[in-house]
Computed example of a mutant assay.
Amino acid sequence: MSPRMRKLVLLLFVLVGLAGVSGCATSKDLRRVQGDLLTRIEATEQKIAALDQTDQSIKGDARTVAESVTLLQKRQAETGADLTEAKDQIRQIRGLVDGMKKDLSSGGGRQDEMKEKVDALSSKIQFLENYLGISKKDDGKEAVHRNGGNNGKETKGKSDREILYGAAYATLKEGKYEKSRAEFQNFLKKYPRTELSDNAQFWIGESYFSEGKFEKAILEYEKVIKNYPEGDKVPPSFLKQGLAFAQLGDKTSARMILQQIIKDYPNTSSARTARTKLNELK
């Protein structure tokens, strides 16, 4: 029994005792009243205990819901990062496939089998692009078509900065790496500090990486890290540096960089890829 209830019981007994002294009730009546009071008090305390238990249960449920929401938000963020990286990789592969198709178009019948394989790969990429919402017909700011191929409507509402960036990115997708580098460098001269500048610098590194020029790619990725330290392309740039060193056979440097990514950017898709690559390098 709680201290408050004990005080209430004592008060009631005192009142009942006073009533008995004043001759308002018999001893039998007083005992009956006291018994009723005790029964009611016990029932009330049981209800209070039940309410306390319910309150604790509700608080526990609230904590569980809050933890679930936090976990869901974290998973959504991770999924978003994974999708972003997948989109970038698919776009790079699309550029390679498009370039291969152009090379094969002049190869004659001897390359028919290879052309069929490239077409099948292209179809799979198209399916993934449609699934992720990055198909050519809806590539957003990174899929602005070349000026010679649009009708003016596709660039409506876009800034000169976005048009120039999109044109360079379209060239990269076509597999014209040297030309795309020149266009991205021109973009950076005009717009060295915009929300697209770190992306442009990153794609310059990617163009070298795609050509197998890993030393030059490492240097270009380093420019992303040094010039745009707050940008979202820093973790991917570290990752690609590590992969480039691995391609060059320098596994020691590759491991050091990949381990640093995991330490400094533990919750990114780049860190997850770094863990996988580290296991492969062992």
Results as ranks from 00 to 15, higher is better:
272 R>Q: 01
186 N>E: 06
199 N>G: 03
47 K>F: 12
114 M>H: 09
278 L>F: 10
247 Q>Y: 02
110 R>S: 13
144 V>K: 05
179 K>M: 08
276 T>E: 10
271 A>K: 00
70 T>W: 12
219 L>G: 07
17 G>A: 02
108 G>C: 10
240 K>S: 08
33 V>H: 08
146 R>F: 15
117 K>N: 00
19 A>E: 13
209 F>Y: 02
229 P>I: 06
241 Q>H: 08
89 Q>Y: 15
47 K>E: 13
261 I>Q: 02
234 V>W: 04
88 D>K: 09
125 I>F: 07
158 K>C: 02
226 K>L: 03
17 G>I: 05
46 Q>D: 08
279 N>T: 10
76 Q>K: 04
245 F>Y: 03
19 A>H: 00
104 L>F: 09
224 V>W: 01
87 K>N: 08
193 R>P: 15
223 K>L: 00
72 L>Q: 15
207 S>N: 06
48 I>D: 11
146 R>V: 12
149 G>A: 13
142 E>I: 08
125 I>Q: 05
39 T>V: 14
279 N>L: 09
18 L>N: 09
233 K>C: 07
194 T>R: 03
138 D>Y: 15
49 A>G: 01
7 K>I: 11
71 L>G: 11
23 G>E: 03
122 S>W: 14
143 A>L: 06
203 W>Y: 09
52 D>C: 04
163 I>Y: 04
90 I>Y: 01
24 C>P: 14
105 S>M: 05
122 S>H: 11
85 E>T: 14
25 A>T: 10
57 S>R: 13
35 G>N: 11
37 L>F: 14
172 L>V: 06
65 V>L: 09
154 E>G: 10
154 E>L: 02
271 A>E: 06
80 G>W: 07
9 V>Y: 08
251 K>W: 07
8 L>G: 11
41 I>L: 15
2 S>D: 10
259 Q>I: 13
193 R>T: 15
162 E>G: 01
225 I>K: 05
42 E>H: 01
159 S>Q: 00
259 Q>K: 15
235 P>F: 01
121 L>Q: 01
41 I>Y: 14
63 R>S: 12
200 A>I: 04
233 K>F: 00
177 Y>G: 07
280 E>P: 01
213 K>D: 02
177 Y>P: 03
66 A>K: 06
225 I>F: 01
64 T>Y: 12
134 I>Q: 00
141 K>I: 10
